[in-house]
């Protein structure tokens, strides 16, 4: 099932949750909608599911107008952030719900329903919990039951809203890997919403980065990390050093100091310089584009994270390999191995 979204606009009062969004999702894809809270990613997901309606724009599934159908007819599996399991039903009945509410004409026999539920519980590896109630499960178990319930109706599309948002770090990592292999197995077109970049980059085939109701970039995990399209994406994904610079006469200036950085093709005016923390190479004083004094050092596994006060007064954090120990008070030169400059 392909999904196509064209020029979607949704306003809540004067706040534009979606401000002209275009998106194409290919059949069998596992797509991540990544963005900070309030970026419109959940609204987009809910509109695709039919739980919200846009003010204008189009949504189509396989070329058919989806907005002409209600949530009930769309055949979309939706996994809610807080699971929304039916609290008065057992796990078994939760998963069976979608099968039991089907019109009599197409409803399966009781035995077939039981077999299907059993199969789904096996798929999420929780068949031993069939008789429990949702309140007796852990967060990770609830999440997997919510997924089994959504899969019961053999959805054409699977939508997951912050699927791991409410779980602790360890369970989250396990479930991430599990979701990816599950998707591989069932291969249904899936979109999940997250504000966690690691999650998006690790699980998804493609990542859609959103901010303020607009799509900032669509690309593979490598694309959005290695070649961010906008200042927002660079700042949001990966840990970056961000410095306000001026472009004048083909020279990049930080404050009143010219930097030895190429400014070819850059428009003059106020700009932002982005460097990944680990892309700042440490050398002797005077050796790079920047110079500064080490203020603070902490070790993080393979790297040492140093706070450096630049000679112009700005403070930046860098991640340096531990082969050359840094000490508080050291004067060092810094050369960005790679950097990006965005206007504005």
């Amino acid at each position: 099932m392909t999904i196509e979204v064209r020029n979607l606009v949704k306003k809540f009062g004067s706040f534009a949750a979606l401000d002209g969004v275009d998106l194409k999702v290919d059949n069998g894809e596992l797509l991540a909608l990544l963005g900070p809270s309030g970026s419109g990613k959940t609204t987009l997901l809910r509109i695709i599911a039919g739980l919200d309606w846009p003010d204008s724009g189009e949504v189509s599934f396989n070329g058919e107008d989806a907005l002409a159908q209600g949530a009930r007819e769309r055949h979309v599996g939706f996994v809610f952030q807080h699971y929304a399991l039916f609290r008065h039903m057992t796990v078994f009945e939760n998963v069976a719900f979608g099968l039991r509410v089907q019109p009599r004409a197409v409803r399966k026999e009781e035995a077939a329903i039981r077999a299907r539920v059993k199969e789904l519980l096996d798929l999420v590896q929780l068949d031993w919990l069939a008789d429990r109630y949702p309140s007796q499960l852990s967060g990770g178990q609830r999440q997997r039951i919510a997924l089994a319930r959504a899969l019961a109706i053999e959805p054409r599309i699977l939508l997951l809203d912050e699927p791991f948002g409410a779980l602790d770090a360890k369970v989250r990592k396990e479930l991430r890997r599990w979701l990816r292999s599950l998707h591989h197995e069932i291969n249904v077109t899936s979109i999940f919403v997250t504000h966690d970049q690691e999650e998006a980059l690790e699980v998804a085939n493609r990542v859609v980065v959103m901010d303020k109701g607009r799509i900032e970039q669509i690309g593979s995990p490598d694309d959005v990390y290695e070649s961010p399209a906008t200042a927002f994406v660079h700042g949001f994904i990966g840990e970056s050093i961000e410095l306000p610079v001026q472009i004048a006469n083909g020279v990049v200036q930080l404050g009143d100091r010219p930097l030895q950085l190429a400014a070819d093709g850059l428009a003059p005016g106020a700009s932002k310089l982005f460097v990944r923390r680990h892309d700042m190479l440490v050398g002797p004083p005077g050796s790079g584009a920047f110079e500064g004094a080490v203020q603070h050092v902490r070790n993080f596994g393979p790297v040492q994270r140093a706070e450096v006060a630049l000679s112009g007064g700005e403070t930046i954090e860098i991640d340096a390999p531990r082969d050359r120990e840094l000490h508080v008070g050291d004067r060092i030169g810094l050369e960005p191995r790679r950097y990006r400059i965005f206007a504005g």
């Binding site: 209600g70 949530a71 009930r72 769309r74 979309v76 809610f80 039916f86 719900f97 509410v101 319930r149």
Partner: peptide
Amino acid sequence: TQEEEAAISLGAS
């Protein structure tokens, strides 16, 4: 309204 939304998306009237 989440449980209701879940029910409707699962095909309940």
